[in-house]
Each structure stands twice: as C-alpha cells, then as structure tokens.
Design a protein around this nucleic acid. Structure first.
Lengths: 156, 156
DNA sequence: ACCAGTCAGTAGGAAATTCCAACTCACCAT
DNA sequence: ATGGTGAGTTGGAATTTCCTACTGACTGGT
C-alpha cells in the first residue's frame, strides 16, 4: 500500500470493504459462521489458493473479526472462529445470499435454505429497528455529516 | 479468467460476490443509489482509477445492475443508474454501513446518517419477512440443498 | 521401525490485475 | 484561438494472484 491519496470521502461502507471486501474474505466468514473454521476445510470449501487464504486469515484476525484457537495441541491444529464483530457481519451475508437467490438463479433451486426459529424459511429483509418497517429506497433520506459529500436528489 | 476448476460449492453469496465483489463495485453502487451517476463524479467520489472504473461499469451494465443513459446528446454525456436489481443491493450497503459505523469508529461521528420515513434515524437490522423477528445467528439453521456442503453444528 | 496420510502453512516464479499519468475526441464558452 | 469539461482509452510500471511443490509436526497402521 503506497500511501493513500485516495478515498476522497469518509464512508463506513468503504472502510468496511477495505477490511472484508478483498476476494475470499466474505467467503471465509460464510464458512466460519457455519462452523467450518479449519484451514484445509476453508481451502476446500472456498477454493482459494492456500497462500492467499493464509494472508486473508491473518488480516481478519488482526482486524478482530476472527480468532485463531488451537483445538488440539500435540499435533498443533487450529480453528478460526468469528468474534462478535465477525458474527455481526452475518446479516451482510444473509442479505447478499438473498439477492443472489433472487437475481442469479432463474430456476428456483437455492443452494442453501436457512430455517428461522419461527419455523419458516428465513426471508431476510432489512428493516428499521425503530419502527420495524422495511427500509425502502424511497423512504430513505441521506444526511451527509462530513465534508466531501454531494448527494443529488433521488430523481426517479 | 482461465477456466474455473474452483468454487467447490454452489453458493449464492459466492455468485453475488463474483458480480459485485470486485474492488470499487459496491462503491459504484453506493454512488448511483445516491444519484451521483456520472463518470467523473464516480472517479472523484470513489477514488478509483478511470480505466478500472470503466471496466467495472461495463460489467455492472452487462450484468443488469446498472443502466447507462444519455442525459445529454450533443455533447454526449452519460449517467449510470441502478436497475431494480441494483436497487435491491442497497440493503447490503445499509447493512455494511451499519457494521462499519459500529465497529470501525470508536468516536461517534458517522460520516453519514440516513433518515427513515418514520422520522427517526435508520438503524438497519435484518429480520425474517415471515415473522418479523430479528435474524439472530443462534436462531438460524442452515439446510444445504446441493452437493458439496458440510456444515458443522454451531458449537458456541 | 517404516511407510502413508493429515493439517497448516511457506516458497518461488509465472500470469493476471491494478495503478498512474498522459492522451484523445467532442463539444461549449470567451 | 484558447481553455475547460465529460467520458473515456492507452501503455507501461507496480502489485497481487495463482499454482505447484515443499516443509514440518505429528498420528496410525503393520
């Protein structure tokens, strides 16, 4: 990283992506959220090159998104697990999965279905925690707090 | 892309990321959702190299996530806008932003606050569309539908 | 003791991407 | 005629990825 004359506006989306937006990182999170946290499992399930995966894992651990735990001393063996911060990225994965299911598959065979505790298949939607209503594009008004932002009106 | 002996499991998250997971793509979406869809605006606001941005835009248009519209013939000038599919990625951005706000800023100055139509600041949470309850990790049970999946129990 | 196998990586070099500054082309304004 | 803007393209240097093979620590079988 040769200095950063970049990223002209402060943005939590950009900051988040700087951490977890690299190739494979979110797939690592998918796996660890499913409980598949061992190195070779990750290699197999994600299909990432081993060296790249090793780099990603280091970064995610450093960022406090994953922890590395030994599940066996003696043959030293490790397992990566999500921290609280890592678990809180699960909603991103759920939303992304729902989008992929809707837009990337014409047929109706989703590769994975998630059951909610309510007994039904989970259909993830993003809502406002205050009022409980869905967060529709047309119901949102962005208010930039920092310098460097210009926001054109929505203009349907 | 030299063939794909990769991606050992079918997954809508992986598929979605193959489309919008490349560097800058989601930031492009952030901008077009805000109404800032012109090339030089995108360059400035995102801080992406112009050639890379041009490549990303082509891909996103091809994928049906963006459209390219002329807002002026005669000096031919274009504007990129989200399609319906593109707009439906906004929840991903909202969720990611909320995560970044929570975990990447110790101070409490969010670079941008979004107001919901209910009158309060939007606090995006992912809920189950069926029962309306939050989708907590411990309330979810994954059911793989396709080959190639092994899911270890959650093991808190 | 010996051989095979697993896990968690590291090493080295080829291949693909990204980054950057400069350039084009079309048009408008002075 | 000169300068400026918008929307890119071009060429080469710098950075990342990808791939195959290798190591090292250990276990399990015979």
């Amino acid at each position: 990283m040769p200095a950063a004359p970049k990223d002209p506006r402060p943005c939590s989306i950009a900051d988040a992506l700087a951490l977890v937006g690299e190739k494979y990182s979110l797939l690592v999170l998918r796996e660890v959220c499913l409980g598949n946290g061992r190195f070779d499992q990750l290699v197999r399930n994600i299909g990432a090159p081993r060296d790249i995966l090793a780099t990603r894992l280091r970064r995610l651990v450093d960022a406090g998104i994953l922890t590395k735990r030994a599940y066996s001393e003696r043959p030293q063996r490790f397992e990566y697990r999500p921290t609280q911060a890592g678990l809180e990225l699960e909603p991103v994965l759920l939303t992304l999965m729902a989008w992929g299911d809707r837009h990337l598959r014409t047929d109706h065979d989703r590769p994975m279905v998630i059951e909610h505790i309510c007994g039904h298949e989970l259909q993830p939607v993003v809502t406002c925690a205050v009022c409980g209503e869905r967060a529709r594009h047309e119901d949102l008004t962005p208010h930039p707090q920092a310098e460097g932002w210009t926001v054109a009106g929505p203009r349907a």
